[in-house]
Lab assay of single mutants.
Amino acid sequence: VCQVIAMYDYAANNEDELSFSKGQLINVMNKDDPDWWQGEINGVTGLFPSNYVKM
């Protein structure tokens, strides 16, 4: 598990995705897919595009 910072706002398009705002910290749970990582914010988990965040 690592933390990343959102570089942009992201609004989920599907129920399994994670919405976040620019500057939010996201706990990364899974990086099996290079493009879509699984993350957690405040107890909510979902997929998000890895190119929207930085380490």
Rank of each mutant, 00 (worst) to 15 (best):
V1M: 04
V1L: 04
V1G: 05
V1E: 10
V1R: 04
V1I: 15
C2M: 06
C2W: 06
C2I: 06
C2G: 07
C2S: 13
C2H: 04
Q3T: 10
Q3Y: 12
Q3C: 09
Q3V: 11
Q3W: 08
Q3K: 14
V4C: 06
V4E: 03
V4S: 09
V4W: 08
V4F: 13
I5C: 08
I5L: 06
I5N: 04
I5T: 14
A6N: 00
A6M: 02
A6E: 01
A6L: 00
A6V: 02
M7C: 12
M7N: 08
M7A: 08
M7T: 11
M7G: 08
M7V: 09
Y8L: 13
Y8R: 14
Y8D: 04
Y8F: 15
Y8I: 14
D9I: 02
D9V: 03
D9T: 08
D9F: 03
D9E: 06
Y10Q: 02
Y10K: 05
Y10H: 06
Y10I: 02
Y10D: 01
A11N: 12
A11H: 15
A11M: 10
A11L: 09
A11S: 13
A11T: 11
A11C: 10
A12K: 13
A12N: 15
A12S: 09
A12R: 13
A12W: 02
A12V: 03
N13R: 15
N13W: 03
N13Y: 05
N13V: 13
N13M: 13
N13K: 15
N13D: 11
N14H: 14
N14P: 02
N14T: 13
N14Q: 13
E15N: 06
E15D: 09
E15P: 14
E15R: 11
E15T: 15
E15G: 13
D16L: 11
D16V: 08
E17H: 15
E17M: 11
E17I: 04
E17Q: 11
E17S: 06
E17K: 08
E17T: 05
E17A: 04
E17N: 03
L18D: 00
L18Q: 02
L18T: 01
L18C: 03
S19N: 10
S19E: 04
S19V: 03
S19M: 04
S19Y: 04
S19R: 04
S19A: 10
S19I: 02
F20S: 01
F20Y: 02
F20I: 05
F20L: 08
F20Q: 01
F20N: 00
F20H: 00
F20M: 03
F20W: 00
F20K: 01
S21P: 11
S21Q: 06
S21V: 12
S21K: 14
S21M: 10
S21F: 06
S21E: 08
S21R: 12
K22T: 09
K22P: 05
K22E: 11
K22I: 09
K22Y: 04
K22H: 05
G23T: 04
G23I: 01
G23P: 00
G23V: 01
G23K: 07
G23N: 14
G23C: 03
G23M: 03
G23H: 14
Q24C: 05
Q24M: 10
Q24V: 08
Q24L: 04
Q24Y: 05
Q24P: 02
Q24I: 08
Q24S: 09
L25H: 10
L25F: 13
L25N: 10
L25R: 08
I26S: 00
I26L: 09
I26R: 00
I26V: 08
N27L: 09
N27D: 05
N27V: 07
N27H: 07
N27F: 07
V28L: 10
V28M: 05
V28C: 08
V28E: 00
V28S: 00
V28W: 00
V28T: 04
V28F: 01
V28Y: 01
M29K: 08
M29Q: 06
M29Y: 04
M29C: 12
M29T: 14
M29F: 10
N30Y: 06
N30P: 02
N30G: 11
K31E: 14
K31M: 11
K31I: 15
K31Q: 11
K31N: 11
K31F: 11
K31Y: 07
K31W: 06
K31S: 14
D32K: 13
D32W: 08
D32N: 14
D32L: 07
D32A: 11
D32S: 09
D32H: 04
D33N: 11
D33Y: 06
D33P: 03
D33K: 06
D33R: 13
D33Q: 08
P34L: 08
P34A: 14
P34Q: 15
P34N: 15
P34T: 13
P34W: 05
P34F: 07
D35S: 11
D35N: 11
D35P: 03
D35Q: 07
D35K: 09
D35T: 11
D35F: 08
W36H: 10
W36G: 02
W36F: 15
W36E: 07
W36L: 12
W36A: 07
W37P: 02
W37Q: 02
W37M: 03
W37H: 03
W37F: 05
W37V: 01
W37D: 01
W37N: 02
Q38M: 08
Q38H: 15
Q38Y: 13
G39P: 01
G39M: 01
G39H: 01
G39L: 00
G39V: 00
G39T: 01
G39C: 00
G39A: 02
G39Y: 01
E40T: 08
E40Q: 07
E40D: 10
E40I: 07
E40C: 11
E40P: 00
E40W: 05
E40V: 08
E40A: 09
I41N: 05
I41W: 05
I41Q: 08
I41S: 11
N42M: 10
N42V: 07
N42Q: 08
N42T: 13
N42H: 14
N42E: 14
N42I: 04
N42G: 11
G43I: 01
G43R: 09
G43S: 12
G43D: 10
G43Y: 04
G43K: 15
V44L: 11
V44Q: 08
V44C: 12
V44G: 14
V44R: 10
V44F: 07
V44P: 03
V44A: 13
T45H: 06
T45C: 08
T45P: 08
T45Q: 12
T45E: 10
T45M: 05
T45L: 12
G46N: 02
G46L: 02
G46K: 07
G46I: 00
G46W: 01
G46P: 00
G46Y: 01
G46V: 01
L47G: 12
L47N: 08
L47V: 14
L47Q: 12
L47C: 04
L47M: 06
L47D: 05
L47I: 04
F48E: 01
F48K: 00
F48M: 07
F48C: 04
F48L: 14
F48G: 00
F48T: 01
F48V: 12
P49Y: 07
P49F: 03
P49W: 03
S50R: 13
S50K: 09
S50V: 12
S50G: 07
S50Y: 06
S50L: 05
S50A: 10
S50H: 04
S50P: 13
N51V: 09
N51K: 14
N51W: 06
N51P: 11
N51T: 11
Y52R: 12
Y52P: 02
Y52L: 15
V53D: 02
V53C: 10
V53P: 01
V53W: 00
V53A: 09
V53R: 02
K54I: 06
K54Q: 10
K54R: 15
K54H: 09
K54N: 08
K54F: 05
K54L: 04
K54Y: 07
K54M: 05
M55W: 03
M55R: 08
M55L: 07
M55V: 07
